[in-house]
């Protein structure tokens, strides 16, 4: 087992390195220059010298190999560098936003689970009845709607209906407060993006719950249980569900990994100052150093979750370890 873990860990290194090379090259392939954006972007008069000085100050004039060494070398010296836009340390910028993104991701996952598992079970138990169809239509609708569109409709709906019912238009807060400072304010801001994203992500998990459960229900031991005259509820709860959960948990874990990167659009719509918004801003500003680190975070989370899933499976099924 340890050997397998070590092997899988080693395999992460080329992936991470490859991603580092890729992001470094891709970013520099995209035409544009942070200093031009900063100075010329406002349409206001500016001094060409200001642009030259800016380029020099943030290190854009350094040779590319040196820039790459500074980027990758930072992981060994534990110095992620400074943002080219604000010239503040990247760790500080990320720290500011990490809690928010993580909270939304966790809340969205909880919402997704809360929707997906009951629906998946109902759908499987009532397979091919109108209930099954209704549930599936509901859950596929979640994945079919563009998330930004859903977000717009949610905010507009809140504004319009709160005014219609209570006289005053209400919208979720637009400044983040940590849950330990103001739990109600925090919740009333983040519940909406969590629902919008969670509903979307529930579709895949619901489908997985349904098919996994159906598969298990066809197994011999369930038939035996049925033959023994156990009531359906007990069969589902005690026997089938437990065995069907493995692929469901896996898919939720993988979705969670995607979620970190998938919040990009949601954070825009709800004005959340999280990593997704920082990412869009940094890309829009051509802030190389910041974008590089954010991409690496997304890649790292993805790789780690996949690693955890693999290890988990290997632990369950020893054959994998030796293949």
């Amino acid at each position: 087992m340890y050997k397998y873990i070590a092997k899988r860990l080693m395999l992460m290194i080329p992936t991470l390195f490859g991603a580092a090379v890729l992001v470094f090259i891709l970013l520099r392939m995209i035409p544009g220059d942070i200093c031009e954006v900063r100075m010329a972007g406002s349409g206001m008069y500016f001094d060409q010298e200001a642009i030259d000085v800016c380029r020099e100050n943030i290190g854009l004039n350094k040779p590319l190999p040196l820039q790459f060494i500074e980027f990758v070398g930072g992981y060994f010296t534990l110095d992620l560098g400074t943002s080219m836009w604000t010239e503040k340390p990247i760790t500080h910028e990320i720290q500011l936003r990490f809690a928010l993104s993580l909270q939304v991701a966790i809340m969205a996952t909880i919402v997704a689970i809360a929707i997906a598992i009951p629906l998946g079970i109902i759908s499987a138990v009532k397979q091919n009845t109108w209930i099954d169809y209704a549930v599936r239509v509901f859950s596929i609708a979640g994945i079919a709607m563009p998330s930004f569109w859903l977000g717009i409709l949610i905010i507009l709906g809140l504004l319009v209906y709160s005014q219609a019912w209570f006289g005053e238009p209400w919208m979720p807060p637009i400044v983040y407060v940590p849950p330990w400072e103001d739990p109600i304010g925090n919740l009333s801001q983040l519940i909406w993006p969590a629902v919008a994203t969670g509903y979307r992500y529930s579709a895949v998990a619901a489908r997985m719950t349904r098919s996994a459960l159906l598969e298990v229900l066809r197994e011999d031991y369930i038939r035996t249980a049925r033959a023994k005259g156990l009531i359906e509820k007990v069969i589902i709860n005690r026997h089938a569900l437990k065995n069907a959960m493995l692929p469901v948990v896996t898919i939720i874990a993988i979705e969670f990994a995607f979620l970190i990167g998938g919040l990009v659009v949601t954070e825009q719509v709800f004005n959340l100052n999280g990593l997704g918004k920082l990412f869009v801003t940094s890309v829009g500003n051509q802030d190389y150093t910041m974008t590089q680190q954010l991409v690496m975070i997304v890649v790292l989370v993805f790789v780690l979750v996949n690693f955890a899933v693999d290890i988990f499976y290997a632990w369950l099924d020893p054959r994998i370890r030796y293949s």
Binding site: L156, L159, P169, W170, P173, I174, N271, T281
Partner: peptide
């Protein structure tokens, strides 16, 4: 940074 958010924020008195 998003225009729609700014309009909504004034509407919802944020």
């Amino acid at each position: 940074t998003k225009l729609a958010v700014r309009v909504q924020a004034i509407r919802g008195d944020r």
